[in-house]
Amino acid sequence: MATGGRRGAAAAPLLVAVAALLLGAAGHLYPGEVCPGMDIRNNLTRLHELENCSVIEGHLQILLMFKTRPEDFRDLSFPKLIMITDYLLLFRVYGLESLKDLFPNLTVIRGSRLFFNYALVIFEMVHLKELGLYNLMNITRGSVRIEKNNELCYLATIDWSRILDSVEDNYIVLNKDDNEECGDICPGTAKGKTNCPATVINGQFVERCWTHSHCQKVCPTICKSHGCTAEGLCCHSECLGNCSQPDDPTKCVACRNFYLDGRCVETCPPPYYHFQDWRCVNFSFCQDLHHKCKNSRRQGCHQYVIHNNKCIPECPSGYTMNSSNLLCTPCLGPCPKVCHLLEGEKTIDSVTSAQELRGCTVINGSLIINIRGGNNLAAELEANLGLIEEISGYLKIRRSYALVSLSFFRKLRLIRGETLEIGNYSFYALDNQNLRQLWDWSKHNLTITQGKLFFHYNPKLCLSEIHKMEEVSGTKGRQERNDIALKTNGDQASCENELLKFSYIRTSFDKI
């Protein structure tokens, strides 16, 4: 039985969820670079991206490699990797027998973001014989899940209580170790020597080791999670996991709180800001991140802002960003909400898709409305799209047979046209069989910064309504002859009103 693990408890099935942008060198404390989270699957090609990484700022997932063999891993080693800020997950990587050479110096898994409450997941690794993470000293947050690894031993010899604050939620089941077939031998045991430290858990006094050649490092209890030197002297209180010299914040392997210019500090002093819960960055760093993602459509890219001495992905609820200094300031009234469309555009074809934009005031991208039916549609669209004030790209209304009016965009005031449909149009209306009105132009103002209007096959939309939009939106004169079809717009509506004058002759039985 794995020490510190839980057996036999019912657990939810383990679901495996399925960018080499360097964020800056980590400095003297770390020998390499800070790398983003990685999802490495199918083959070993991307694994080489770990070569210079000291910190993975995010998670590391290595999974679904069915053609790899043990010899493929023999020359692979990433000794610079010290810390993973989120979680480490391995799933069905064939041929991998140990992690001792792959990650010989991995010391800390912070667990800032977890995989279903777990910071370390080893699942269905069919050839893994031992973990071998002999320098792993601290899992700051989260638990361990090690399950269905039929060859995995050296679990009962690990004292997880020396690595985690609590072992109650560890789930370590259905491994070879369960069948008591392992016969784990710690260093020196074969020669009758006791080389590794022994600890007591559940009444068992057991030597602690990761492999037959690597003991588990056990520091004096007084050192807590700070770690200790090879001689057993406690590291500085700002260290986490390990250090090369005692009581020196510049000799830590990793930091308990924050890293700044080669030393570990309790908090980031001005003019620095907390970033990702582990390091200090200056304003320029946060500003660069903001600008890199301002026009990016890459998933996970955030326009970072500053709030409460932190550089964070977005302002919290009730705050909006001051564009001059990136500071989050309290909103006066309802907060603006910028919604970034991942692929640059979004099609609204149902109430469900409209709900995804609920509360958005600025759309960074283009909207395509293609709704053919739905219950209580006008009210639903207004509830979900009615706060949109600005669209950076274009607005396209296409084959939306259920629409009679666009009044559900009740606050839309600006279409920038930074991206144009077919390279020309910022407003595009095609084949809307029941569209009769755009907006009530006596109450609604709309500016279209650039781009043209396109109207074709809107049989109940009168040309007068379209011409009014040209005047109000500032697009009059931009359109070419064929942009607004004269014969297919309003051709099934009563669009022309003329005053009919009647004269009559009164007659009676005795007068003409």
Score class of each variant (00 low, 15 high):
residue 254 A to T: 15
residue 322 N to L: 12
residue 60 L to G: 00
residue 103 F to T: 02
residue 158 I to T: 05
residue 67 K to R: 12
residue 103 F to M: 13
residue 232 G to M: 08
residue 132 G to H: 00
residue 316 P to A: 05
residue 195 N to A: 14
residue 214 H to R: 08
residue 92 R to W: 03
residue 273 Y to R: 05
residue 139 I to C: 03
residue 191 K to H: 06
residue 106 L to R: 01
residue 143 S to N: 04
residue 278 W to S: 05
residue 57 E to K: 04
residue 86 D to P: 00
residue 49 E to M: 11
residue 61 Q to N: 07
residue 150 N to E: 12
residue 226 H to D: 10
residue 129 K to R: 11
residue 189 T to H: 12
residue 141 R to D: 02
residue 187 P to G: 05
residue 117 N to F: 07
residue 82 I to V: 10
residue 208 R to F: 13
residue 78 F to W: 11
residue 265 V to S: 11
residue 238 E to S: 09
residue 83 M to E: 10
residue 301 C to I: 01
residue 175 N to I: 06
residue 68 T to W: 03
residue 215 C to V: 04
residue 45 T to L: 13
residue 116 F to M: 03
residue 202 N to G: 15
residue 224 K to D: 15
residue 238 E to W: 06
residue 233 L to K: 11
residue 105 N to F: 13
residue 302 H to Y: 13
residue 281 V to D: 00
residue 72 D to L: 07
residue 35 C to N: 00
residue 36 P to A: 15
residue 290 H to G: 11
residue 54 S to K: 06
residue 37 G to F: 06
residue 237 S to K: 02
residue 138 N to S: 12
residue 148 K to M: 09
residue 208 R to Q: 10
residue 327 L to Y: 15
residue 245 Q to A: 11
residue 293 C to G: 13
residue 87 Y to R: 00
residue 204 Q to I: 07
residue 308 N to F: 08
residue 205 F to H: 06
residue 296 S to A: 13
residue 291 H to T: 01
residue 325 N to I: 15
residue 292 K to S: 09
residue 67 K to I: 03
residue 185 I to Q: 03
residue 284 S to R: 05
residue 102 L to C: 02
residue 146 I to T: 01
residue 232 G to A: 11
residue 166 S to F: 10
residue 257 N to R: 10
residue 300 G to N: 07
residue 332 L to T: 04
residue 86 D to F: 01
residue 273 Y to T: 12
residue 62 I to S: 00
residue 323 S to A: 12
residue 214 H to L: 04
residue 285 F to E: 13
residue 127 H to D: 07
residue 190 A to E: 07
residue 320 T to I: 07
residue 318 G to R: 05
residue 240 L to Q: 07
residue 236 H to N: 13
residue 110 R to F: 05
residue 183 G to F: 15
residue 141 R to F: 03
residue 271 P to K: 12
residue 242 N to P: 07
residue 185 I to G: 09
residue 310 K to N: 09
residue 184 D to R: 15
residue 189 T to R: 07
residue 278 W to M: 09
residue 263 R to Y: 15
residue 124 E to C: 03
residue 37 G to A: 15
residue 128 L to C: 03
residue 159 D to L: 02
residue 253 V to A: 10
residue 316 P to Q: 03
residue 237 S to E: 05
residue 121 V to L: 02
residue 276 Q to L: 08
residue 201 I to S: 13
residue 211 T to V: 06
residue 161 S to C: 11
residue 76 L to M: 05
residue 163 I to W: 01
residue 224 K to N: 03
residue 218 V to G: 03
residue 228 C to P: 02
residue 220 P to F: 02
residue 316 P to I: 12
residue 262 G to L: 06
residue 70 P to H: 15
residue 226 H to P: 12
residue 149 N to Y: 00
residue 251 K to I: 10
residue 205 F to G: 02
residue 141 R to P: 00
residue 248 D to W: 06
residue 48 H to C: 12
residue 32 G to A: 15
residue 298 R to E: 08
residue 68 T to K: 07
residue 330 P to E: 15
residue 291 H to C: 13
residue 310 K to L: 12
residue 71 E to S: 13
residue 150 N to K: 04
residue 101 D to E: 12
residue 135 N to Q: 13
residue 79 P to G: 11
residue 214 H to P: 01
residue 277 D to L: 12
residue 106 L to D: 00
residue 32 G to E: 09
residue 309 N to G: 11
residue 66 F to G: 04
residue 194 T to I: 10
residue 192 G to L: 10
residue 79 P to M: 09
residue 176 K to S: 04
residue 123 F to I: 00
residue 227 G to F: 03
residue 290 H to Y: 09
residue 215 C to Q: 00
residue 64 L to R: 01
residue 67 K to E: 14
residue 38 M to E: 13
residue 335 C to W: 14
residue 280 C to K: 01
residue 105 N to P: 00
residue 203 G to F: 11
residue 64 L to K: 04
residue 296 S to G: 14
residue 98 S to T: 07
residue 193 K to F: 14
residue 72 D to C: 13
residue 217 K to Q: 14
